[in-house]
Structure formats: structure tokens, C-alpha cells
Computed example of a mutant assay.
Amino acid sequence: MPAEPAETATPLEQAVLRALESVIDPEIRKPITELDMVDRVVEAGGGRVDVGIRLTIVGCPASDRIERDVRQAAESVTGAGNAAVELSVMTPEQRAALTERLRGGRARTNPFGPGSLTKVIAVTSGKGGVGKSTITANLAVALAARGLSVGLVDADVHGFSIPGLLGLVDDDGLATRPTRVDDMILPPVSHGVKVISIGMFVEPTAPGGRASSTAVAWRGPMLHRTLSQFLTDVYFGDLDVLLVDLPPGTGDIAISLGQLLPNAEVVVVTTPQAAAADVAERSGVVARQTGQRIVGVVENMAALVQPDGTLLELFGSGGGELVAERLSQGVDGAAGEPVPLLASVPLSMALRQGGDTGVPVVVAAPDDPAARAIEQVAAALSSMPRSLAGRRLDVSVR
């Protein structure tokens, strides 16, 4: 609940406190008045006020923005030049109270397991090079643009690329670092999407080297631990949708996802090529074996319309429909739950350029055919009813 102005506060102090309720911490995405960041608001005479703000940590990367927003909010009441803002840092006890409040008093647990109201969508593919991460990044941004609260976990530990696709890297390839508040990790935000990736924690292997070229050579237990930590230690807040970009194949991470997020719904990405479709089908089969539900197939790199109107089918045709048809079959070829082909995303220069520049095509060129196809996927997924499988319903029978 927002902080209530103290009964002993003067009318000016009360008005400034109410104005500060509009100041949002850019990392936690909550009002600073709810986060106990307002240390004091004191009338100083002559219509001036002194405002004290407690930052969460020393060197808070959002300190300049918070100071600016606090000053603007206070001066909306007092007038320009009549608000002095002083920044300090929370004590360890205050930080501990904050993290406990954000977690709702719960211990460090995975908030997206059975019983969660967040729609969890895992994006998978049988093989690499089909554009799975590009589709995932654009889909996350498209869902956020629809007004949904969206988080994205880059679980492709060995081949992480989400930070670059969303513009969360500098010129040296160093990804934006998350902010740590004690044992809580605050994910960076890009285009309205909260993002976490192992790429945000790696260092260059050599002086002057690019962090994005650093290889992560981990085996199964370490991969499982990393995914688990992303889900328990990263504070995403209340999400409508959590997207998980899985590595290609059917290995350790896919199995860990089934254990950690058994209620996840799966989107399979393939290209039109028959060989890619065969491998993509296997990733869907593994998802089903771990108890997850396949909600659709996305065909990427589909036919490109030439200037003369002809189609360039560089990677063939029909792969997406083939995967959807095969995954719609039950055991021994019997009819199973229908798996739709959500969209065919055509080959697109704008899609590729958006990935290189860190500005997704759904933002940079929303009228591009690839952007419209991804918007079609976002519309389909956002309108799908959430499965109640594995969720506790708080009802009683009398």
C-alpha cells in the first residue's frame, strides 16, 4: 500500500508525499513510497521542502533517474527550485525488510511452479539456427506492447543471444548487469520486458576481448542449478507471461524445465525444411514426455515475396504444417490434442537487421511481413485460456 502522509505532517509535506507516490523505481517497477525509500519530507520554510531518499544499494544504477523524478514530483507541488533532494542508502536491516516484502514474506522459492497464475511459455526447437531466439525476443516485446507484464529467461546457456537481440549490450559486447539487492537479483528491462541471461554474468576471457564471445562450458548439474537460480533469485514481480528461451535439442535444460516448470506451455519453432521439421518434432515429443502441453508451432524463414510477386522458398515449404500435424497425433497415430500452426514468419531483412541492432522488428518495422506474423503469434497466445492443470483451486464442497 502507498505510504500514508503522517498526521503530524504539514499540508505542504503531505502534498509532496502524495506526489512522490507517482515516482516509480525503474528496476523494481513499484512506487518508491511502497518500497520504504522515502526517508523524510520536511518543510524548510519559504515554501521549500527537503526530501530524503534511501537507495537500495551503494552505486545504484538508477540513482540519477530516481533523483530527477523525485525532484520533478516534489517541485510539481512546491514550484521550480523549491525542493532539495538528498540521497542515502538503506541499512542492511532495511534492505532485508524490503526483499522480504517483495517476496511476500515467502522463502526463496520458484514462484512460477504449479499454482502460479503466470502463463509460462517455453520456446523450443530441435536444432539450432532456426531463429528460435529471434522469435522469442520479438514475441516477448509484442506481448509487452499489448499491455502484459512480461519476463524472459534466456535458458540457452551455451548459446545465449537474448541480451544482444534486445539491445542490452554495449559496444564491447558486455551485457547490461542486473542489480543485486542482497540475495535478490533485479533483471534489466528492455522494451518493457524484464530479462535475465547468463550473458549478463560472464566476463571477457582476455583483456580487451568481447564478453559476448566468452564460452560457457558447463555440464548438466550446473545448467540445472543456473535455471533454478534464475527462477528463484530473480525478482520479476507479478508477471502475466514468462517466456523461456530453451537451447536447441532435447538435453539437460529441457529435462530441467519439465521438473522446475511442469505447467509450462510449449511453442515449437521450425523452418520449412523437412530435415528441420523432423528434429523439431522430437523437441515437442520430449516436452510432452515431461508433462508439458504444446500450444502451437511457429514456422520461421518461410517464403519471401519477391518484387515481382513470386515466392522465394529458400528453405523449402510445408515444415511448419508437418510438425503441427504430427504433434496433433496421439499415441500410435490416434487423434490427440490439436496443435495449431500459429504463423509462418517469412524471411526478412528487417527481422535480421533488428536482431543485429538490438531493436526488434516488431518495434523497428511493425508493418514488415515478419513483424505482422509475430504479432499474429502474440495475439493467439494472449487469447489462449490458461490451463488449470496442476493448480490448486481454493473451493470447498459443503
Rank of each mutant, 00 (worst) to 15 (best):
M1L: 10
P5F: 05
E7N: 02
P11T: 05
L12M: 12
R18P: 00
D25R: 11
R29N: 10
T33D: 10
T33W: 11
A44S: 15
G46Y: 06
V49H: 08
G52M: 14
C60S: 08
C60E: 11
D64P: 00
A74H: 12
P92F: 06
R95Q: 15
R103L: 04
N110R: 07
L117Q: 12
V120I: 14
S125W: 04
G129R: 01
G129H: 01
G147S: 02
V153A: 11
V153W: 03
D154I: 05
D156A: 01
A175C: 10
P178L: 13
R180P: 00
S190M: 09
G192K: 12
T205V: 04
A206Y: 07
S212Q: 15
T214A: 15
A215M: 15
W218A: 13
H224D: 07
Q229C: 01
L239R: 05
D240P: 07
L243N: 03
G251K: 06
G251P: 07
I255H: 07
G258A: 03
V268A: 04
A275P: 00
V279C: 08
R282C: 01
V285K: 05
R293S: 14
V298F: 06
G309D: 02
L314V: 10
G318T: 02
E321M: 01
L322W: 01
R326L: 02
P338S: 12
P338T: 11
A343D: 10
S344I: 01
P346M: 08
L347T: 06
L351I: 08
G355I: 07
G355W: 04
A364M: 11
A365Q: 15
A370D: 12
A371H: 09
I374L: 15
L381Y: 03
S383F: 09
R386L: 13
A389P: 00
R392S: 14
V395H: 04
V397M: 08
